Computed example of a mutant assay.
Amino acid sequence: MTKQTQKNNGSDTGYRKCEVCGLSFEGRSDKRFCSDACRNANKRQVQRISGWQEPAFVEKIHRMLRHNRQILKERLAGESKLIISKTDLIEAGFHFGYCTSIFSKEINIYRFCYEYGWLEVENGKILLVKNDRHTEL
């Protein structure tokens, strides 16, 4: 038995130790981790060590988009269209400057956060819409 094989198997019984948590497990001879969670933890650790990290502004924008989407989803609550006040969205922490796509229809400009969108109408009102076609890839 080679040193590499002994390291992977841990013993002659076919069991190996997970490289992350140290638990024994059975599986393919080249399997290094006991679960997907340990495999992902190892990948994150390698990325941290190698210095790879998403720029802070990318993560901040992603959080804002998810937050906007959640607010729109909660307000629509299963409806396909709804008119609410702009103040309601502002008080909920909605960021009007962040959207994933823009759709123009005649003079109206809809802005979308994934499948949820909004259109500014008169008198401080906002039309909320849901468009499932945005989720079809």
Rank of each mutant, 00 (worst) to 15 (best):
K105A: 02
F96P: 07
G97K: 02
N68W: 05
E91T: 10
F57Q: 15
C38D: 03
D36V: 10
F94R: 03
P55F: 01
G78L: 07
A92I: 12
P55G: 10
S101L: 03
H95S: 15
S35W: 06
E115C: 03
F94V: 02
N123Y: 12
E120R: 09
R69F: 03
I126V: 14
E26L: 01
N42W: 03
D36M: 08
R48I: 04
S85F: 05
K73W: 09
L65F: 07
E59H: 08
G117F: 13
R39Q: 11
G51L: 07
E74P: 01
I107Q: 06
C99G: 10
R28Y: 00
K125F: 12
F57W: 14
C38K: 03
M64A: 15
R44P: 00
I61C: 05
A41F: 01
D30R: 04
F25H: 02
R28D: 04
K31V: 04
R69D: 05
S80M: 13
C99A: 12
R44C: 07
E54M: 08
T87I: 13
S35K: 03
E115P: 00
R39D: 07
V46C: 05
K86A: 13
C38F: 01
G27P: 01
E26R: 01
K81W: 04
V121A: 02
E122M: 11
R32A: 08
K105H: 10
D88R: 04
G124N: 09
A37K: 11
N108Q: 14
F25V: 01
E59Q: 13
A77H: 12
F25P: 01
V46I: 12
F96C: 09
R66A: 10
F94N: 06
R111S: 11
F25S: 03
K125E: 15
E91W: 08
F112G: 03
K43M: 10
K60A: 15
I126M: 09
N131A: 08
Q70G: 10
E79I: 07
K73T: 08
R48D: 09
K60N: 14
K60E: 15
N108P: 02
R39C: 07
E59M: 12
F57M: 10
E74F: 04
V121W: 01
C38V: 03
N40V: 13
F94C: 04
N40Y: 11
C38L: 03
S29Q: 01
S101M: 05
N131Y: 05
I102A: 09
K73H: 14
I90Q: 13
R111Q: 11
C113R: 06
E106Y: 00
V46E: 05
R32V: 06
L128D: 09
S35P: 04
I49Q: 06
I102T: 13
E120N: 08
W118E: 05
N123K: 14
A77I: 03
R32F: 00
Y114M: 06
I126F: 06
Q47I: 04
K86C: 07
K86R: 14
F25K: 02
L119G: 06
E120C: 05
K31I: 04
I49L: 09
C113Y: 09
K86W: 05
A56S: 08
